[in-house]
């Protein structure tokens, strides 16, 4: 019986029919999706912190309004994704609990500090740029609610990247000190951005199951190469450089060659030893704990109102 269901399920996937929450699905598919979607949601929520850091210090009212809108979008993206995960049978509070206890991860890129205003430009250009490249294929994910959430996310994300590039473009036309600040930010964020695509394909121990189920569509290295090719050209417009002495156009491959990535650093950060892991999680937990009375009060008020209505009726 189980096998018959599995066959029907795989047939649907092969025909590109989306799976919806109430449809039968293998338990492993459900769990993989809950893990993926919830950790994606956590990344959006934690991702607000490094940029929130600069809202009060944005250099103009225009920049401040843009940054607030961007951070608000990230909150929205987190909420779309949490809702998508909830359709699989996990509760919002359970997901928060996994984040706060460190059981669930979020993108390691947010464990790096945002030291200068130029970081807001680089986060938009490189970090959101890498995220978009990773996320566009997810709009065709086999799980309907995830795919629909990602369509919304991707639509909103492109302003994020453009505003970041604009920040850097303005700095590139600025004073020597501003150009230095921008170059320094690029130097610090370039390699962590490349790590966002995940380990090299041939070092990956996991199965091809997720490809078969069409949760995943492109390999890490394919997307990373595409990202490098795009950025190597865009950085010329800015008149800055990428911090990689091996970066060179390869006529034969039709791609840029680039230097080796420090995977030790990557796994160190994932496992909690990055520059800001503790700070980020503490900020998140503080917000959750100190907001408890608001959640309780709103619920108590709603219950009271409902009861009054009952008595009146």
């Amino acid at each position: 019986m189980e096998q018959a269901f599995e066959q029907i399920f795989q047939d649907k996937i092969d025909r590109e029919v989306r799976i919806e929450p109430k449809d039968w699905m293998p338990e492993k598919y459900r769990q993989t999706l809950i893990r993926q979607i919830s950790q994606h949601a956590h990344s959006e929520i934690i991702g607000m912190l490094p940029e929130g850091n600069w809202i009060t210090r944005a250099p103009s009212l225009r920049r401040k309004a843009i940054l607030i809108a961007k951070v608000q979008d990230e909150a929205g993206h987190g909420l779309y994704l949490y809702s998508a995960a909830e359709t699989l049978g996990i509760s919002r509070d359970q997901m928060y609990d996994q984040l706060h206890t460190g059981k669930a991860k979020y993108s390691s890129i947010f464990n790096y500090p945002t030291l200068s205003w130029a970081d807001m430009g680089v986060v938009g250009w490189l970090v959101d740029g890498a995220a978009i490249m990773n996320q566009v294929p997810l709009c065709r994910s086999s799980f309907g609610p995830y795919a629909r959430a990602m369509v919304r996310v991707c639509k909103e994300e492109s302003f994020h990247q453009r505003q970041g590039f604009e920040i850097l473009y303005v700095l590139s036309k600025g004073t020597e000190a501003q150009r230095k600040m921008a170059q320094d930010a690029i130097n610090r964020w370039w390699w962590p951005s490349l790590m966002m695509f995940g380990p090299k394909d041939d070092e990956s121990p996991n199965s091809i199951q997720s490809m078969k189920w069409k949760i995943k569509r492109f390999s890490n290295d394919e997307l990373r190469q595409k990202f490098v090719d795009v950025c190597a050209e865009q950085v010329k417009v800015l008149g800055f450089t990428l911090p990689d002495k091996d970066l060179k156009w390869n006529e034969e491959r039709g791609h840029y060659d680039f230097g080796p990535i420090n995977w030790d650093e990557f796994w160190q950060v994932v496992q909690g030893n990055g520059p800001c892991n503790k700070e980020r999680l503490d900020a998140r937990k503080k917000a959750w704990e100190e907001g408890a009375w608001v959640r309780d009060a709103a619920l108590a008020y709603a219950n009271k109102k409902a009861k009054q209505k009952q008595v009146a009726a």
Binding site: Q39, S108, G198, D201, N206, M211, K216
Partner: peptide, 13 residues
């Protein structure tokens, strides 16, 4: 070919 595609914050099991 073996692949381990990690999405935004998802580092696998």
């Amino acid at each position: 070919f073996q692949i381990n595609k990690l999405y935004y914050g998802d580092y696998g099991e």
